[in-house]
């Protein structure tokens, strides 16, 4: 069975080919990391996977089903959740509301039921709340439950965003630079959480990351990109020592 596979992904922006024939496969239970210099097309791949961008060519397969033409809002329902590089939280809502929105993919109440708030809606809401609380406990977000996002420090927001993604109960979690803007301690915490997400929750992680200490700590496989083309695939160590990768980072 194919858990997740990208095959020959290509996307053009005007005349620029941002991603040029990238193929990779992620096995269930892995932490798969994409690295590469700025502008290598890492985040673009994420946007392709979460269907925000339309690929010029190539296919995406998830759980043996092709998802290349699935509309973006369907992706969450299929079991892929993501975070964003620059944090896209709902800023004028509380942490709890953000997490509950993460439950949207599991929404089962209908508009008219909600309009009069039937007991069924109440019961479903309580279910959603239970699920959100589990994530809050998992990521230690209890103190921030009722604070507005605008009032939270950056590091906490990053965690909240990961929590929101976890609330969708994904099979595959896409983390776009989870450590960017975090302090050294926060980055370490992040590494532990990513390991916990994989081992305790059994969620596969696909991640874009710059911080090599984090990458080597958690990744099973690493894909290095440059100018939208794959350079090397393998373990963190293998990729780091690969001559093309060294060349891409150090020039020459």
């Amino acid at each position: 069975m194919t858990f997740f596979a990208a095959d020959g992904l290509v996307i053009n922006f005007g005349g620029i080919r941002a991603v040029d024939g990238v193929s990779f496969e992620v096995e269930q239970g892995q932490v798969f990391t994409i690295i590469g210099p700025n502008g290598a097309g890492k985040t673009t791949i994420f946007n392709l996977v979460s269907r925000i961008y339309e690929p010029t060519a190539g296919t995406l397969v998830f759980c043996d089903e092709e998802i290349t033409r699935v509309p973006p809002h369907e992706i969450a329902r299929r079991g892929i959740a993501r975070t964003f590089q620059n944090i896209e939280l709902f800023e004028h809502a509380t942490v709890l509301q953000n997490l509950l929105l993460g439950r949207h993919a599991h929404k089962r109440s209908r508009f008219l039921e909600e309009l009069v708030f039937l007991p069924r809606v109440r019961a479903l809401e309580l279910e959603h709340r239970e699920a959100a609380e589990k994530v809050i406990d998992f990521l230690d977000l209890q103190p921030y439950r009722d604070s507005l996002i605008v009032n939270l420090p950056y590091g906490v927001r990053k965690v909240v965003e990961m929590a929101r993604a976890l609330c969708t109960e994904p099979k595959l979690l896409l983390l776009d630079e989870p450590s960017s803007g975090l302090s050294v301690e926060e980055t370490e915490d992040m590494a532990f959480w990513i390991q916990d997400i994989r081992t305790l929750l059994g969620i596969t992680v696909l991640m874009v990351e710059h911080d090599m200490s984090l990458v080597s700590a958690v990744s099973d496989r690493v894909l290095a990109l440059n100018y939208g083309r794959p350079l090397a695939v393998g373990t963190a160590r293998e990729v780091q020592e690969h001559p093309d990768v060294v060349k891409a980072y150090l020039g020459g």
Partner: peptide
Amino acid sequence: DSEIAAQSMGV
């Protein structure tokens, strides 16, 4: 607050 995030959460 964020269309893009709403979309990727399944809205």
